[in-house]
Each structure stands twice: as structure tokens, then as C-alpha cells.
Design a protein around this nucleic acid. Sequence first.
DNA 1: CTCACGTGCTAAATCGTTTTAGCGCATTTC
DNA 2: GAAATGCGCTAAAACGATTTAGCACGTGAG
Lengths: 365, 365
Amino acid sequence: MSTRKKRSKKSRSERPTLKDLAEHLDLSTATISLVLNHSPVAAAIPEETQQRVFAAAREFGYRPNYIAVSLRSRRTNSIGVLVPEVSDPWAAEIVSGIESHLLASDYTYLLTSHRRSTPKLLRDDLELLTRRAVDGMILVATELHEPPLLPTVVISGHKRVKGLSNVVIDHDLAARLALAHLKELGHRRIALFRGQPGSSDTEDRSRAILAAAASLKIEIPPKLTLQLSGEEGDEVFAPNAAYQEGYAFGQKLLARRMDFTALFAFDDASAIGAIRAFFDAGLRVPEDVSVVGFDDIQIAAFHNPRLTTVRQPLREMGRIAARVVLERINGSERSDGSFVVVEPELIVRDSTGPARDRKSKKDAR
Amino acid sequence: MSTRKKRSKKSRSERPTLKDLAEHLDLSTATISLVLNHSPVAAAIPEETQQRVFAAAREFGYRPNYIAVSLRSRRTNSIGVLVPEVSDPWAAEIVSGIESHLLASDYTYLLTSHRRSTPKLLRDDLELLTRRAVDGMILVATELHEPPLLPTVVISGHKRVKGLSNVVIDHDLAARLALAHLKELGHRRIALFRGQPGSSDTEDRSRAILAAAASLKIEIPPKLTLQLSGEEGDEVFAPNAAYQEGYAFGQKLLARRMDFTALFAFDDASAIGAIRAFFDAGLRVPEDVSVVGFDDIQIAAFHNPRLTTVRQPLREMGRIAARVVLERINGSERSDGSFVVVEPELIVRDSTGPARDRKSKKDAR
DNA sequence: CTCACGTGCTAAATCGTTTTAGCGCATTTC
DNA sequence: GAAATGCGCTAAAACGATTTAGCACGTGAG
């Protein structure tokens, strides 16, 4: 191949550019670009020339420089994804769903964790992603208070903000499913873990649970509702915060008068933490206390006891969010302040059982 | 401010460019760039002009266009990170460590999962990242067989390849810690889960374990060693594969003659899966079988029973890997085929206990 | 013969920055 | 009085693509 010689004339190991091809083919870069991109303008170029171009591109292993293309086209084919913490299994599963749709659509994503930091730092994260010129954003469980500058969708957000799309779960249904199940098992007075104040799901879920409890005549006394991350106002975000807090709050619950027969935890992680605390205090689950989680993260089905939980289709939600941002970016989709609502599902496993009657329970401590 | 007027003359909502500033200040873009970047050349420019430039930049909210800077400087300040699967808690924790170092160093990263696909597809992943013009790569538990084109470090890799840096754990120490612990508890014949054939840790860990077993006179019969993902050769990667396989293999183990008193699992996930299988078969852990995991993922301390495991400092390994790529990219670090070795630690919890003697065990089934 | 149109391309602008070479002028040096 | 130096800045090229306007030439119609 004489071409090899020609190529090495310029540079050994660098990737070939359009200019290199142009020189080799004795054509202009314009022509080559037109042909390679199957531009309609290229219709006028005879088949034979086109073949020469394709052949050369193949031979040289030509790949367009992404940066240059981005500069010209003003799009990077990348999405910014902001999660509370990557190593949280719940978030990881959503990210996995986002990823699968994005990569299949020839997009990449930049991931950042805000670690539940202050709103001010959150602005920095958004600023970072914007500076990196992402085409759109997906915010996971993170509330945005002002209209975004880019196509944005938030997963588990509930604010109706202009320019924002939301993917949410039907919390009323979720609450009814879980509480009806507990009621059927005889539970009448239960404890509740509310979410972190920063988490965008917290308010809506609590509201729905309280409403369902009222209509089902289940008591959830304020004394027995604990807000995760609520009291210490900690800036530092421990890696295993979710389990850890469930544990601490399980203990806190036990320290109060133990007149509840079930716990509805904010998520599976805090449920598992609480179960650990109950075990350590000599209680059994579900014999002494029933526990219902939320999310159905992977471990839920393998934990001991297997966790009864309200399943969120996390992966699916990620995929939907990805689809929606791409639609907003590429299409003429209006979807301002739109909501996509997905259905929860109650997965009954082994962490819930018939309620003990109150008196014997008190002895159990 | 008359500037406001001047700005809106050109474009309302677009970000201001150097040219906009230049027009406004009646200077050239060159000068402004020089000043803003504190270039030594700018030393000749009088303090007063510099202040004018800074002030205007602040007022206009000027941010250099990342794409343009990248095109010129031929670096994107981004790293490609390739993991088997994002939602695997083990990988997620490593990613979290990578992220913390990278973001602190003003780098971002592109994450992709290869989902243990074929080597051919893996090439596609690398190709994708290369096309996206990352400055370097971190491969997690993924073997590379040829010298990389970019600064690359692999976590848990063991190939000594030119141009590759490795972050590995001391598997000999890990094996000795775990097996000595089991021996002390009276275990003499144990089962073993080997890793997935694709996982770069598999071989080294197995070798170390077999060596340690030999020197401690512990039997690990081939009949009782199972290779995860080894037999079905499945292309499809289930999300919860790790737990699931542990479960399936726990059952498989029970189906064989149950003449082992302990299981050393390849990782915590398969350990937890196996424990689930043992429970479902009516066995207790650790009373009937002891189980040792590997990794110490977050759930390990909260599982029931709490998992005894060989701790890998996953987050730390991620951070180290990030540090090393950045050194390779920016510095004159040679580090060709270098190895950074981190220390494992045995965390004894509740999934291991004294070995039952053989006969009574057999009855237990 | 002239005009229109089609064919097969290319020149040049553009995206937004960085950076090198150097210009024009004033002052100092010998 | 010529040469050197310093000052304060700028022109222009470069990074690697995309895309619009249009050129030069040939053919066919009227």
C-alpha cells in the first residue's frame, strides 16, 4: 500500500484528520465531510468518488474528532446526571437504567454526586455540568427550585416548574398498598421513617402515607415518625449513611415506648438498618415487629428476612428519564412541567407478619 | 449599566464569548485571554487594564467555552471509567472513590458498563471512550491484553502490560487471613466460589487461596469449587446477577455431598446469595455452615448474620487509581506496568463460627 | 447563438479559544 | 544620532470539523 507511506509522512501515531484524507484523495475536506455524512448535497457526487472516499476512510481508520464536531454543532451528545450518592444501591440502579438508554442512543453522561450537600453546593454541581456543556440533565431525587437553563428531567421530583419534566411514582397507590397489607395483618399503630429533608420524594410520600393511614384508620403518631438525617444536620455524608441511619433510628424507636407493631421505612436501606437494630435488641422480625421497605433494591430479595417492600421500577424510571430528556433535546416536544407517573407494586416477602397484640409486645422488651 | 445594552445588542440569552468581551472593552480577544489565564505574557499589561478585564468578565458572567478550550488544548479533562456493571454495589463503591478524587481535581468522567460482555464488545467500549476523547482511562476488574493508547490504570488487574498501571490487593495476605481464621475455628474442608472468568481478579485470588490452603492443610476439593458465571456462558447480564448466582451455587453445593463446613465466597454478593440458599434449605449460618465473603460492601455489616469478610478498601482503591491516571496524564511519571498494592483486612463478624463435626452435619440435611 | 440548467466539486466562514510572532511608539544607552 | 530596549498590545494561525454559496465546465433547449 502506497498509502501507508503517505500517511506516515505527516505523523506516525496521531489519528488521521479530514485534511489527511483530503490530501491523500486529492479532494477538499468539504467533499469528504459531505460524503461521509451522507449529506443530501452529496447526491451530486458520483458513486465512484464516494466509494473512493469511503475506502480511504476505512483504510485510514478515520474517526471524526468529537470535540471539533461538538464545537461546530454546539452539542456534545452528553447528559449530566446528578445523584445524591453513586454508591447508594438505590441510585446506582437508576443510573444503570439511565445508562442503558443513553448509550443505546449514542449519548454519554457525566455523573456527579452532591452528597446531600447544601443548596449552594448543589448550584456548583449544576454549574459544573453546564460548563462541561452537557445537552441536558437528569436530576435524581434532587429538587430544583428555579427553571433550568437546559432540558432537564428530575426523577422523583414533585415540583411543577417551567421547563422541568418529572418522573414520579404514584405515592398514593404505594401508600395504600403497603398500609392495606399491614392492616390486613392486624397492625393498627405503626412507626414511620420519613426521608431526608433534601430528598425530593420525602414530602409527597409522607403526605400520601398519612392520607392513606387516615382513611384506613391506622395510627402513625408523630412520636413514632422519625425524619432521616433530620436532626443532626450533618454536612458530612457517610458512605453507608442509609443503613447506618436506619440502625440508629431503629434504636431510637426502641428507646421510646415500644407500642407499635410495624415500621414503614422510607427506603429499603433504612429498613434493613432498623431490622439490624431490632435483632440486636433481641427482637425478631416479623414475629415481634413487621417492617415494610420501599424501593426493592437488589438486596431486598436476599436479605434475611426477605424484605417486604414497595417496589419502584428504578431501572425503568431511569430509562424513561433518559428517553424524556432526549426527546426534549432533539424533538419539538413541549413537555413543560410534564409528569410521567409509574406504578409501584407491593412485594410481599418475609419481613411482615401478623401483628402481635400489644400487651405481650411490651413484655418482649 | 450601559453594558447591559451592549450585551443585548448581540444576543439575549447566549453565554458571552471572548469576542463579546473584546468588543465591550475595546481590546483584542488575545489580550483578554492572556489576562484571564494569568499568562506570564500578561505581565506587561498594566494593572489597570487587567482590572478592567476582570471586572468585565465578572459582570458578564463570562465562562470559557469548554469545548473550544478542549479543541485547542487537545485535552478534555475527563477520564473514561469502565466497570462491569454500575449497579453492582462493589463497583459503585469504587466509582464513588474515583469520583471524589477526580472531581476534586477538576476532572469529570464518563462511565460505561460492559456487563461482562464479550471481548469484542469490550473493544467497542474502549473505542467509545477513545472517540469521546477522554484523557485517560480507569478499567475496573477488566483485563486488557494489549498496550493501551492512553494512560490507563486498571483496578484489580494483574497483567503486566506496557503502559498499564495496576491497583491490586495483596491476595496472598487476604487468603491467609481468611483461611487462618477458618482453620482456627476448626474448618478443614471448605467450598470455594471462584470469580467470573472475565473478572481480572479471579485467577490471582484463586491461586492465592489454593496456595494458602495447601500451606495451612485445608482441603478445597475441585468438586467443591464452583466458578461463577462459568457454566452457562450467558451473554445477558441480569441486574442482580451477583446475588442470584450465589444463591444458585449455594443450592448446587447442597445438591452435592455436603461434606464441607465452610464456604469462602468470591465476593460478598455471592456470599449473601449462598447464605440465602442455605437458609432456604433449612441450614443455619454459622451454626451449620460458616461463610466468608470478600470486599466488605456496605450491606455486609448489616446483613443477618453480619458477614465475616475480607475487606478491600474499595473507595481508597478508586481514589488511588484516579490519582495515578492523573499523574500519568500530567506528570512525567514513568509508572509503566507499575503496581500499587493495597492491604486487605479480615473483618470477623457473625457468619463464621466453630466447625461442626462432619457426621452431625450430614444429618442436618 | 444565447440562456438555463445540471454536474462535480471547492473556498471560505464559522464554532470559541490559545498562543506566537511582532508592530509601533517612546525612552534609554553609548 | 543610531541602536537597543521596553511597553502595551494585536494579528493571525491553529485546533478539526460542517456547511453555504458559488465557480467552471458541459449539455440541451429555444
